[in-house]
Simulated scan of single mutants.
Amino acid sequence: MKRILLSLAMGLTPLLAHAGCEDNFQKWTAQLHPGRTLDAEHAVCKAWPANEALTIAALPLPQKGSNDDTSTDDLEVLVADTASGTVIAHQFQKSAFSYDAVRFSGLTIDTARYQLTPQNRAFGIRVAHEGSSRVNPFGQTALSLYVIDGQSLRMVVDRLIVEDSGGEWDGNCAGSFSNTTRSLDLGPAGKEGYVALKGTEKSAQTVNVVQNGDCKYDVNKSSKRTGFTLEYKNGKYTVPKAMQYSD
């Protein structure tokens, strides 16, 4: 019996190893964008914890003429049936992000509990960017939220900056740095049935200096915490320009 169980386990191992949603990347690309090349290195997918019968994916698609130095990518965001891989709903975004002085560096699927109405639960796609300068470091991550709307996905939050860091230093020690993070929580339901999104913003400023030949970190550190609210109106949440990512 032990030998039989061991043989069955060994036989199932290859199947389990190849049962991930990543196996559908090329299939989805060919179906939705025949002839296009997928940036498989940055493509992501994840079964939706709120409903594991559904899988979320984000597929970056480099435009023609892109190269290692400069590139513009389109983005396909989709929800598929987990068992079959059949696409249920999707949204295509042209020129979603680019590689240049500020470069696209990665995608993350956010499946926090964004229950916007009793019937509509959103999921998020986080897009990270980073600067190429060592002495002027820069990084930003923007969050967009989507809900299923028939056979389409509807973006209800458009590129809210949830992480923002930067600075200027001498490449060795001395310099100043800033960091801001934003998080979202659910507020009361509004007139259209969608909850308000209650945000918290935390920001910090730090300074490094050289004293007696030693680097002193986080000198004159300051921080503050503020709140903000995103209200739902006309099919989406209004994101203030100062909080919205823009190329």
Rank of each mutant, 00 (worst) to 15 (best):
Y237M: 02
G190D: 08
L145C: 01
W48T: 08
K46F: 04
S246V: 04
E163N: 06
C215A: 12
A89L: 02
R36W: 14
D158Q: 02
V79E: 03
G190Y: 02
I88P: 05
V127Q: 10
D68E: 14
A19D: 09
S152N: 04
Q31K: 12
S105T: 14
H90K: 13
Q91W: 05
E22N: 08
R126D: 12
L78E: 09
Q63D: 06
V156R: 00
D110I: 06
S152L: 02
Q211V: 08
A9S: 15
V195W: 06
A53N: 12
V207E: 14
L107A: 05
A17I: 14
P14C: 06
L186F: 05
V127L: 10
A80S: 03
E76D: 07
I4D: 10
H18D: 15
H33Q: 13
Q31H: 11
T13M: 14
V87F: 05
W28R: 01
G213F: 07
K233S: 11
K241C: 05
K64Q: 10
D185M: 10
H33C: 11
V209I: 13
T70M: 13
E168R: 08
H90Y: 11
E201R: 12
C215R: 13
A57L: 09
G131T: 03
A196F: 09
A80R: 02
V209W: 07
D214Q: 12
Y146L: 00
L15Y: 10
T72E: 08
S105M: 12
A30S: 08
A80T: 04
H33M: 10
D69A: 14
T200I: 15
R121S: 00
A204V: 14
A17D: 07
S222Y: 12
R113V: 15
R103F: 13
A9G: 15
L38W: 03
S7A: 15
L12T: 08
T238E: 11
G139R: 02
Q211S: 15
S203G: 13
D164S: 05
A43M: 05
G150W: 02
T141S: 06
Y114W: 10
I148G: 03
A53Q: 13
L107R: 07
M155T: 01
D218V: 06
L75M: 04
T111V: 09
G106I: 05
D158L: 00
K2G: 14
V219R: 12
F228C: 03
F177E: 04
T181S: 10
T55I: 13
L78V: 02
E163C: 01
L59K: 02
A80Y: 02
E163K: 03
V127M: 08
D23M: 11
G227Q: 10
G85K: 03
S246F: 05
F177W: 07
W169L: 00
T70L: 11
A47I: 09
G167Y: 01
Q63H: 08
G187Q: 03
A142D: 01
A17Q: 11
A50L: 05
G20R: 06
K46W: 09
A174Y: 07
K236D: 14
K216N: 15
A242T: 09
N172R: 13
L184V: 03
T29R: 08
V156K: 00
